[in-house]
Amino acid sequence: MTLLIIGATGTLGRQVARRAIDEGYKVRCLVRNAKKAAFLKEWGAEVVRGDLCYRQTLTAALEGVTAVIDASTSRPADSVSIRQVDWEGKVSLIQESVAAGVERFIFFSIVDAEKYPDVPLMDIKRCTELFLAESGLNYTILRLSGFMQGLIGQYGIPILEAQPVWVTGDSSAIAYMDTQDVAKFAIRALKVPEAEKQTFPVVGTRAWSAEEIIALCERLSGKEARITRLPINLLRTVRRVIRFFQWGWNVSDRLAFTEVIASGKPLNAPMEEVYQVFGLDPNETATVETYLQEYFSRILKKLKELDYQKIQPKKQKPKRSPFKKTDTQ
């Protein structure tokens, strides 16, 4: 079976590619930047240049492909908009997959996407779900919440460096999941008949609020967080202002997602039946506690080693005396 993975250089996509390769699949990755994808070649994947925004590049990439796993999404720094990548690009990918005779299509969406029609990314995810379901493809939709990997930059590093930790509005509890565990479900979906033409939540073992994450990081790091609360109304005002400028459209759409994580409504879902369908053991799923504990243990150990090296006296080279005789003298 040949897999085409979209977004394979991203936080989730690289774990999907790694898992697929380890399980013996022939993996092809569609990438925009070949240099950034060098590690995929080293792993054993085939790398092809392409872009969801350029439909003509998808045809060749899909040739001979059995299944597609789409882990791509627009990024805040991209010059293109969320709509161009996450809607128009996905529509092109789905239509080209139908034309290429792709047998399976795995798509990542977001938990409770239908509840936030005013948030561009959530609305686009829901519309893509509907479009995929009506396309005729044999699909599986996995609805995610948040990634544990994002906790490091949002909480871990600022706390270690005594930088502000930003908290907005009423913190929504989020069931964070390690991307390695998400990848298990994605690859497993290819083998499970019960997953065909179905939608499943794929979330972590429990939901955590921002305050709970901060308290855990403080305990594990031994440092106190500098919490800065940003009023949601201020963000709404900023979003409306930058919406007047074309360069701010993408940032504005991203800020709209703050409405989700500051609503106080949890991003979570029951997982008991999902584990049964996929035949996976919930006890093997990483928890936020173990993930952050491993991170802080590793970082604090490294910091101690660096401090040790700083206090070690440097070996002084013996000074040569200008009066010392040589053998030739």
Rank of each mutant, 00 (worst) to 15 (best):
D178A: 13
I152S: 07
K184G: 00
I187N: 01
E218R: 03
T237I: 11
G169R: 04
L137Q: 02
D170A: 11
L130N: 09
L160K: 11
R239Q: 10
T228G: 10
Q154W: 08
V238G: 14
F200K: 04
V182K: 02
W166G: 12
V192N: 05
A186V: 03
R219I: 08
L160W: 04
V202C: 05
A175T: 01
I141R: 00
E218C: 06
S172C: 12
T168A: 10
Y155F: 15
I152E: 11
V203F: 03
E218Y: 01
R143T: 03
G136T: 10
L132S: 02
E212T: 09
E224T: 15
I213W: 06
V182G: 04
T205A: 13
S171F: 03
R206C: 10
K223C: 11
K125Y: 02
R240Y: 13
R188N: 08
C217F: 01
M177P: 01
L137P: 00
I174W: 07
L235P: 06
L234S: 14
T228E: 11
C127Y: 09
R239G: 15
E196Q: 15
A215C: 07
I152R: 10
K197S: 06
S221H: 09
T140I: 02
L235Q: 11
W166N: 14
V192I: 14
R229W: 07
Q154E: 12
S221I: 10
I159L: 04
K223R: 15
D170L: 14
A189L: 06
L230V: 15
I232Y: 11
G136V: 01
L144R: 03
Y139I: 00
M122Y: 10
K184R: 13
F185W: 00
E218I: 01
K223F: 07
R229C: 06
L190N: 01
E218F: 11
A210W: 04
E211S: 11
N138Y: 06
M122L: 08
A183G: 03
I227E: 02
W208H: 07
R206D: 14
R229P: 05
P231L: 12
S171V: 07
F147E: 03
I152H: 13
L132N: 02
Y139A: 00
Q149P: 08
Y176I: 06
R219H: 12
K184E: 11
D178E: 08
Y139R: 00
L234Y: 12
